[in-house]
Design a protein around this nucleic acid. Structure first.
Ligand code: ZN
Ligand code: ZN
Ligand code: ZN
Ligand code: ZN
Lengths: 138, 138
DNA sequence: CGACAATTGAGAACCGTTGTCAAACTGCGG
DNA sequence: CCGCAGTTTGACAACGGTTCTCAATTGTCG
């Protein structure tokens, strides 16, 4: 058994741990609200690292479909990102300061599935975000 | 029922019914899935009318905040539009063909409010869309 | 070490959307 | 019927976020 073949199809390693990816991860660890790619890029710069904007976008996209960060869109349609817990969850976001709370609602999950099934839909997924003004911004 | 009684009593400058706005309304009546502004613009052109793209955007935005059309964003962040019923509702959308069903869920409405209040948030709003594959696209 | 695929970054390209502003259109009062 | 003032329109430029290009670099692995 030739040791590890922990990731890719043809055996060669797929994702390489690079300085840039570490910098993005570090930046993500530094806030817990949702931020745009550009804001994250700025953060990285402030932290002294230098990473191209395109790389930030690429890394965020990769992390997102690896399920390590959540991406959603603000009212203007911009993508905003945040490192989140693994489990399926939704967000309660403060419109003013961006403060974010992860929330879970088994009942809602059940409801969406039921409704969709009822209409004959399959391969169901959903998006749900709650916006409001947090206590601190009142 | 189109509760659009724009002409109020003290009818000072309101929204003027113009050829262009009528064309947009007509286009909106011609489909029941969500379409982008550009697609709607194309539809109008195909119908023989001629309306500037900027005007289409302006009209859609106006209709949207008059509550006569719903706007949401597809995965790419583009705005897509559809004329909907007045009451608050959500959407069950087919990923393949775009077929859309309006759905209501009083329980979900209650849940979002409860969760938000519980965390001290005020002025609550939310977005919720369900995606799947409809029977016809199976 | 040497070969090589994965990765990076500067800048251009994309593309949906919004802003500009002069011309066209309305409703209204005279 | 005419002219004025405010509204609306549209061709086009400008914007801004995101993706693409491609040569140069950098991990990985034998
Ligand atoms: Zn999350
Ligand atoms: Zn859910
Ligand atoms: Zn709707
Ligand atoms: Zn709702």
């Amino acid at each position: 058994m030739t040791s590890t073949d922990q990731s890719g199809p043809a055996g060669r390693s797929a994702v390489r741990p690079t300085r840039q990816r570490r910098a993005v991860a570090a930046a993500l660890a530094g806030f817990d609200d949702f931020r745009s790619a550009q804001e994250i890029h700025d953060l990285i710069t402030e932290q002294g690292d230098s990473v191209g904007l395109a790389t930030v976008y690429r890394t965020l996209a990769a992390l997102a479909d690896a399920g390590e960060v959540d991406m959603l869109r603000n009212e203007d349609g911009e993508a905003i990102w945040r490192s989140c817990s693994d489990a399926h969850h939704h967000h309660l976001v403060c419109r003013a300061c961006g403060a974010t709370v992860e929330v879970e609602g088994p009942a809602v999950e059940r409801w969406t599935n039921a409704i969709a099934t009822e209409h004959g839909f399959a391969d169901i997924s959903h998006t749900l975000e709650i916006f409001g003004t947090c206590p601190a911004c009142r």
